[in-house]
Amino acid sequence: MLLPKFDFHEPKTVNEACQILAEYGAKARILAGGTDLMVNMKKKILSPQQLVSISRIPELKNLEASADHIRIGACFTVADLCESDAIQRHLSALAEGAKNLGTPLIRNLATIGGNIGSARPAADLPPPLMAYGAQAVLSSLSGERTVPLDQFFLGPGFTAMKPDEILTEIQVPALPASSGAGYINIGVRKAQDCNLVNVASFIALDAGGIIQNARIVMGCVGPIPLRARSAEKILIGQKPDTALFTRAGAAAGSDSTPIDDFRGTAAYKKDMVGVLTRRTLDIAFHKATHRQ
């Protein structure tokens, strides 16, 4: 299977990458792990004339946990996410998403930046990242800007990134004391499967154990990962228990807009959104009350 022809660039710094993107604009594409882009190019869905590989830019591979943020470089691989103690400790729902992405061979190549940049509605990392309130940091020759992931996805394969911008890092704000998140994905098989439904839930409790903040993100049930706003409203201000989580699950199901396809019917997916919302809230509540 032949790849279309292109010119290849391998910048060593972000600035150099931005210069190349500024010169070629929409004719250029960023290449990270290639696990999405190579497939799209082989299928001739995309034929960029200029390919800008960012794998040799060391600063994009950093992971930094400070008092107020965890910053994950765009080229941090999914395998690195699975193995990182800091991710497991602070962002366990993201680690869970990473462990369930693709295959070991894919995880060794795939990057967090590529998972976000490809903007697939079924992708594993956006729901946990959005549940944690993550932001994307975008760089271009005109400077740097930060976009909340909530506003980043515009449709399947479309994002708020401009052609001359590069996603340099993902910032996750440090979590409040009594908070936690859970992530569950289901597919037709256990390994190497496109998700049928995936849900991430985050809750933060106040000193009295009341839910102060909640974010629920559903994948595969709309053109982009969706927030379950009415489910979140049901949770905020309440004391967590199973009945409440079940009600929130039912509301999340109504918030979702799935379609019938060969993986399952829309009705089944709505039901599964309900189940996964309840289960991920259970995990989030457990984390919130057991986290040191």
């Binding site: 290639g34 190579m38 590989s53 395998a79 061979l105 190549l109």
Partner: peptide, 13 residues
Amino acid sequence: GKAVNSCLVLAIQ
């Protein structure tokens, strides 16, 4: 040191 799919890697990389 990492097992990967060589059909998704460019020779130039």
